[in-house]
Design a protein around this nucleic acid. Structure first.
Lengths: 152, 152
DNA sequence: CTCCGACTTGAAGCTCACTTCAACTCAAGG
DNA sequence: CCTTGAGTTGAAGTGAGCTTCAAGTCGGAG
């Protein structure tokens, strides 16, 4: 029981549904051995991979990108703490950038709450860097594509 | 040309595709008058509604929730700056919370980078508030559902 | 050996936020 | 009047990230 984990056990330990774990396997995010009867058995190190996937999702990284990151782990040996730390550091930069952008949005929003504007004329939320001077009166939204929804 | 806007003009001004604007209309996020020939004509105030939608999406609010928020605007009169400010304030709290959570994730990640763990045993990323003591050795992930992907 | 819950598969379904398509009409300049 | 670009519709498609389903198999307790 402490050699390898069934999918149910990995699910319980990771908090990720079995269906999601199978999905992750199809995408190449995790791997499993098989028993004689074709059932999945997970090495305990897979727990760490699942953990990395979930954290990465919180950072806002797609499963495809997570796969690429995981692919950069050494496949010959069991990844060391340093290997994991290297991956985490890359995400940290993205996290910083994300926090920075949200902070800017908040500050801008505060400004708009103060003036009650949302005006599209002067508001920094719509006119970031004053980048759209020409083309007649009235600004254009040049916001980046919106962030997808947070499933709470 | 400055009484009302065609869908193309609203699109150019807002940076939102015409197809998306029609979609928003179906969802009840924005409204349009019609010409004799059945074409949409938008009051200039709709520009502000579109702006609110896009900002709200950045805050991580679903279109359904945005619709509910917009429904709370007075329909009898044109919303005042104060009306808009009230809506924005509600989102501000969500934004604060979101920033706080990402900040915590970053700090936790820093800790894990330091120790190279992602260990599932002691790591605060997996064991928030030390909330899962029982049920044998090994923690369970009790992270909230992951955030969806940011479309860059 | 029996039983039953946990496991297997591929295919289909789901939600969100749109986009694309086909077939058509409208509006404005020349 | 003709042409052309912009607008109209409903239906279907997209992609991410899963879940659900049906029909069947495995494996460990009794």
């Amino acid at each position: 029981m402490h050699e390898s984990l069934t999918i149910g056990q990995l699910s319980a330990r990771s908090g990720v549904a079995p269906s999601a774990l199978r999905y992750y396997e199809r995408l190449g995010l995790i791997r499993a051995e098989r028993t004689g009867g074709n059932q999945r058995r997970y090495a305990r190190t897979e727990l760490r991979r699942v953990a990395f996937v979930r954290i990465s999702q919180q950072v806002g990284v797609s499963l495809e990108e997570i796969r690429e990151a995981l692919d950069s782990l050494p496949s010959s040996r069991t990844p060391t703490p340093d290997d994991w730390a290297a991956l985490s550091r890359a995400w940290r930069d993205r996290l910083d950038e994300k926090i920075r952008l949200l902070g800017k949005l908040r500050d801008d929003l505060d400004g708009c709450i103060g003036c009650g504007c949302l005006s599209l004329q002067r508001c920094t939320l719509y006119n970031p860097e004053d980048s759209l001077a020409a083309e007649g009166p009235g600004a254009r939204l040049v916001l980046p594509r919106p962030e997808a929804v947070t499933r709470s």
